[in-house]
């Protein structure tokens, strides 16, 4: 187990978003999270790296084991520096080139030399197919290219876990494919991933295990073939049917 989350709870004011969610991810595994908007999918990711402060629960991550309520600064720092996140809106550093975006973490967090950082970053950008966009600023790149830079930025730090928060939801349809291809390659290379997505076919394709989240709880989970092929719960069936109707139209 690389990550184990126990009874994760999170409220915004009186609105309880996560009502005790427990799951785990094995090394090299891809965990998919699906569910309707507002079900708390993104909040799970954001609680893991403390972009949102969770209320309670227990985290076991690599060799760390701590209770969220008594988490110390070093625990938070450990989580952030050993995970990486890919955001729905890319969130590339606006005034840094593609190359500088990828180098930033290596320079500032890993304290590597400029030369080393540049060497690694060039190689990773080439891996996501952007060898000739290194000196471009985010506003000079298409959405798909920006998201590939963001994935490269996440990969550069060689994190123990990569979290992707609806990585294709803000993209034009013709750019979804190139980003999904990159993610698929990352998964094949053996990276542990936690991915929230509305792309049911894609999740079905790359995930080892899928959680269906509903109203802040895991309503159903299992292998993708079981969950998508033969859902046990009525609300899972309902959700999948709605998701499918939409994709039927887009075909």
């Amino acid at each position: 187990m690389i990550l184990q989350i126990d009874k994760l709870r999170k409220s915004f004011g009186s609105n309880e978003i996560l009502k005790g969610v427990s799951f785990s991810i094995g090394e090299g595994e891809v965990l998919g999270v699906i569910g309707s908007s507002g079900s708390g999918k993104s909040t799970i990711l954001r609680c893991i790296n403390y972009l949102e402060k969770p209320n309670s629960g227990r985290v076991r991550f690599a060799d760390r084991d701590f209770d969220i309520e008594t988490a110390e600064k070093q625990d938070i720092r450990y989580m952030r520096s050993h995970t990486a996140m890919v955001f729905q809106q890319f969130n590339l550093f606006k005034y840094k080139t593609a190359l500088e975006n990828v180098m930033e973490g290596l320079l500032v967090v890993r304290k590597q030399s400029k030369k080393e950082a540049e060497c690694i970053s060039r190689e990773i950008l080439a891996r996501v197919g952007l060898e000739n966009r290194m000196a471009y600023y985010p506003r000079e790149l298409s959405g798909g290219q920006q998201q590939r830079v963001a994935i490269a930025r996440a990969l550069a730090l060689d994190p123990k876990l990569i979290m992707l928060d609806e990585p294709t939801s803000a993209l034009d349809p013709e750019m979804i494919g190139e980003v999904l291809d990159v993610i698929r390659n990352v998964a094949k290379s053996g990276k542990t991933m936690l991915i929230v997505s509305h792309e049911m076919n894609f999740i079905n394709d790359i995930a080892d295990h899928v959680l269906f989240l509903d109203g802040g709880l895991i309503a159903e989970e299992g292998a993708p073939s079981a969950l998508f092929g033969n859902p046990q719960q009525e609300r899972t069936r309902l959700f999948l049917r709605r998701a499918n109707i939409i994709s039927d139209y887009s075909i």
Binding site: N49, Y50, L51, R77, R80, S81, H82, T83, A84, M85, F87, N91, L92, F93, E104, G105, V108, V109, R153, A154, L157
Partner: peptide
């Protein structure tokens, strides 16, 4: 958020 997420 992006800066924090890479461990800064």
């Amino acid at each position: 958020e992006a800066a924090l997420s890479i461990g800064m």
